[in-house]
Nucleic acid binder design. Structure first.
Lengths: 226, 226
DNA sequence: ATTATCTATAGATCTATAGATAATGC
DNA sequence: ATTATCTATAGATCTATAGATAATGC
């Protein structure tokens, strides 16, 4: 029985031994991410990915056991990119002295900015998650982690909240903001009433809404109009 | 040059001449809707659709010029089903004397109920819209129409609104509710903080949020606790 | 000597058509 | 006589592999 290059059924991506190989692997993942966000997963053939990465189909299969392994690897890379940023962003030390409104406003602004500049990532993620929920589990878990950590930050400030059931209100408010962000960033094909609204105005209205609901003070504004 | 059975390039679905044919056409559309909502568009082969409909691939191509024509026809049928219900639901006469809060609460409850019992439709619609925005345009236009008509109903009641810019606030509130509905109904694979929340509690919190934001009175409750 | 890549192709789908057969309605 | 359906299959992809060639690092 010939020795398989694949370490186990759980390890479908070959461990590179040469820098050249690592480079090709990165190019393949880049190409896949681009193509999937442009055309969707099923219109992206392995041959397309290989040729955009500037290598052959054979090279592709040197690195990945099959097309599914590429998807796993791509999701893993997306997750890795997200993890570090996310954890730094919700570090409690970073937010000492900040109010709920300040934290939520920063969450909105950061998510919009990150979503705009990396729209391929979002679209690829959405496509992959809709196609195969299990494969997107690691990324999903990070989304949950972000949610939990944000909720922790807010719960530590529950004294600010006027809403009767602070726990539930915090969860609901976060879900509300997350829903709007997802649709605003990726829901073009689902239509929107707010196409004419700029990001800054969107953030302002979202903050007005969430502050009214939670019964907290609005974020301090550097402008003349408080 | 043989006469084409297709009337023009814009008419890709054959006009049935016999009741038997209409029945088969309906069965094909049913089968397609089911399979697409179960497995997605690309894992649904024409052969799968034909066999679930209990006919052959040949019969499929008697009715549809190609697979794209089926998608168009399916979207057209979904749109037709939606149109009548939607127009009746937002008929101004139906809502005479109702407050903004009552209208929005009914919108939430109706959307959740309809979404639950016809989840296949929603999923198929989401899949089709993400895949080919142009093909979903007719359904999208109906979504916009629903949004406009709802907004009209609310604008006619703008005196109830305490928010400074009633127009913008109405648009924003509708978009907020729509975002949450879409994610709640179809965003399972995208994760949610509110999985444990029942529909009734979801509606209550959403109403609390939107009433606080718009600065309107909450919906009258038949319960002991106003 | 090992690792990485390329070329060429077998095998598995899947779409769409051709041509034969069956059902319908005048 | 026309409409609807079925069977069988050609042609187009697309995935994954086999075997040869090139690059790397000890």
């Amino acid at each position: 029985m010939a020795k398989s290059p694949w370490i186990s059924d759980l390890r479908w991506v070959r461990t590179a031994r040469q820098p050249r190989s690592r480079r090709t692997l990165g190019l393949l993942l880049d190409a896949a991410e681009e193509l999937i966000s442009e055309k969707g997963l099923d219109d992206t053939a392995v041959g397309d990915i290989a040729s955009r990465a500037g290598c052959s189909v054979g090279a592709f299969y040197h690195h990945f056991r099959d097309k599914g392994a590429l998807i796993q690897a791509l999701l893993a890379r997306l997750a890795e990119e997200f993890r570090a940023t996310m954890r730094a962003a919700v570090d409690p030390a970073r937010w000492e002295g900040a109010s709920i409104a300040e934290i939520l406003e920063a969450y909105l602004e950061f998510s919009l900015e990150a979503g705009r500049e990396r729209s391929g990532l979002n679209r690829a993620q959405l496509v992959l998650a809709l196609r195969d929920p299990a494969a997107g589990a690691q990324l999903l878990e990070l989304q949950h982690e972000l949610g939990r950590r944000l909720a922790d930050l807010l719960r530590a400030r529950r004294d600010e909240v006027g809403h009767g059931d602070a726990e539930r209100a915090i969860d609901f408010a976060l879900e509300q903001l997350r829903s709007m962000l997802i649709l605003r960033l990726e829901g073009v094909s689902l239509g929107s009433r707010l196409e004419s609204l700029g990001d800054a105005e969107f953030v302002r209205e979202a903050m007005a809404s969430v502050c009214a609901y939670l019964q907290i003070l609005p974020p301090p504004r550097p402008e003349y109009r408080t």
